[in-house]
Every structure is written in C-alpha cells, then in structure tokens.
C-alpha cells in the first residue's frame, strides 16, 4: 500500500514541475489538473472518500474555468534570464527547509495514528449523538457547524467580490480611451 503512495507522490511532483516549466499555458493547466487528480486518488487510498469526491469535482470545475480563461488570454511565455545569485540562494534555502522539515517530522506519531484525542471522541460517539452514519457529515454539520458557517460566509464574500469586479457595467461612465485600450465590449 505504501508503494502506491510513493508512486502517486512522485507523479504529483513531476506534474508540478511540468506545470511550472512548460511554455504553453494550456499544457500547464492540464498538468495542474493531473496533480489534482493524483491528490484525489491519494485521498481515496487513504480511506477518505468524502474528500476524494469533493477534490475530483472541484478539480473538474477549476480545470474548466482555467481552460476557458487561458484560451482567451495572451499566451506568450515570458523570457527568463538565468540569474546565478538567485539560483544559489534558492538552492540554499531549499536545502535549509528540507532539513528543517525532516527534523520537525521526526517528532510526529507513526503514519495512521492520530495525535488528537478529540477526533477519537468524535469517532466513538458520532453515530449515537448526531444520528448520522457518515461521520464526516456528523462532524462538519453538528459538532463543527460553526466552522461550516464561516466557510459558507467566505464563499459568499468571494461571490460578492467576483460580481463587483467582473460586472458588465461600471458605476462610472466608460471613456472612449478606456474602450480602445482594454477592448471591452459594450452592449
């Protein structure tokens, strides 16, 4: 079972590297999608089907949005010069953070044994106390419903922001100079 996780992790690392390094925008978006589906498979093998379903569906929707956004956008790649000082500094900090991560992770409990006492209490009493067989639904909508309310409010605010920024007509009248510069369709 551990071998599957390692294969998926290497697949996701390669996908992320392709997404960063490729010149074509559409290839980068598809590589990001492959990484997302790898994450969802990982959740499925770890025994978290709720998160796997949500991850797959959000990944599909965000892929559609990204593809639709990038096919209309300007796809020219930015030319980069190799900066030796930036490369050396980056490598130094990469090594530093990898060592710090290994040092920090050595204190964790073994894989699959959670540290939190609260979660064991939830697992034992969820079905009897909330009546929901699906423990995840019992936790997010009964024990932790207040957190879910906060999450819903975050989404609500983001919709308000999207409508304000992307609406068709602004409050101020559009100059002809703006129309020429940005090529906005006025209806």
């Amino acid at each position: 079972m551990i071998a599957i996780f390692h294969v998926l992790l290497f697949f996701m690392i390669i996908g992320s590297a392709v997404a960063i390094e490729t010149k074509n925008m559409l290839s980068a978006v598809i590589a990001v999608g492959a990484v997302g589906f790898g994450v969802s498979l990982l959740f499925l093998f770890l025994g978290a089907p709720d998160i796997a379903i949500t991850q797959v569906i959000v990944e599909i929707l965000s892929l559609i949005i990204l593809i639709r956004a990038t096919t209309f956008a300007d796809n020219r790649a930015v030319e980069r010069k190799i900066d030796s000082f930036a490369t050396i500094t980056g490598l130094f900090f990469l090594g530093f953070f990898v060592m710090a991560t290994v040092w920090a992770f050595s204190d964790l409990t073994p894989f699959g044994e959670p540290l939190m006492v609260v979660s064991q209490r939830y697992l034992a009493g969820s079905s009897a106390e909330t009546g929901a067989v699906n423990v995840v639904a019992g936790v997010i909508l009964d024990y932790r419903a207040y957190d879910t309310l906060g999450e819903a409010m975050v989404l609500f605010t983001s919709v308000l922001g999207a409508f304000v920024i992307l609406r068709r007509r602004g409050k101020k009248p559009l100059d002809e100079a703006d129309t020429e510069q940005f090529g906005i369709i006025s209806d």
Partner: peptide, 25 residues
Amino acid sequence: FIALKVGAALYAIFIGLSVYGRIVT
C-alpha cells in the same frame, strides 16, 4: 441549504468569469 449556497455561488462565479464583458484578443 449548503448545496444551494455552494452550487449557486460557483455558478455565479463561472458566469462572472465567462459571460460578463470579456477582453477581446
């Protein structure tokens, strides 16, 4: 209720990104 909220919100964001006056190449 959460399904109504999340579904309508993401549909609204998608409309905002794809139908509202977009920049012409």
